[in-house]
Computed example of a mutant assay.
Amino acid sequence: MKSVLFVCTGNTCRSPMAEGLLKAALPKGSDVHVSSAGVAAMPGQSASRETAVILKKKGAALDRFKSRQLDATILEQTDLVIALSSSHADMVKRSAPEFAQQVNLLTDFIDPEEGLQGVDVPDPFGMNSDAYEEVAEVIELAIPGILSAVEKL
Rank of each mutant, 00 (worst) to 15 (best):
V103L: 05
L80R: 02
L80I: 13
N104S: 10
S48E: 10
Q69K: 11
E50C: 05
S46W: 05
E98T: 15
I110D: 05
A47Y: 10
P43K: 05
A100G: 13
A72W: 01
L75E: 07
P97A: 15
A83L: 05
A61R: 08
N104Q: 13
Q69C: 14
S95C: 14
L55E: 04
M42K: 12
S67A: 09
I74G: 00
A83C: 02
S67F: 06
L62I: 07
V53C: 10
S87I: 14
A83I: 06
L75P: 04
A89S: 11
L75Q: 10
L70Y: 00
L55N: 05
Q102L: 09
F99W: 10
K57T: 13
D108W: 02
D71L: 04
D63T: 14
A89F: 03
V103W: 02
A72L: 05
V53E: 13
P97S: 14
D90K: 10
E50V: 13
D108N: 10
D108M: 08
F109P: 01
R68H: 09
S85D: 13
A41N: 04
I54H: 00
D79P: 01
A61Y: 04
Q102T: 12
M91D: 10
H88F: 06
S48I: 12
Q102C: 06
F65E: 07
T107D: 09
D90A: 15
S46A: 13
L55S: 11
K58I: 04
A47L: 11
F109S: 07
A100I: 11
G59L: 12
G59K: 02
A72S: 03
M42V: 14
A100W: 03
G44N: 07
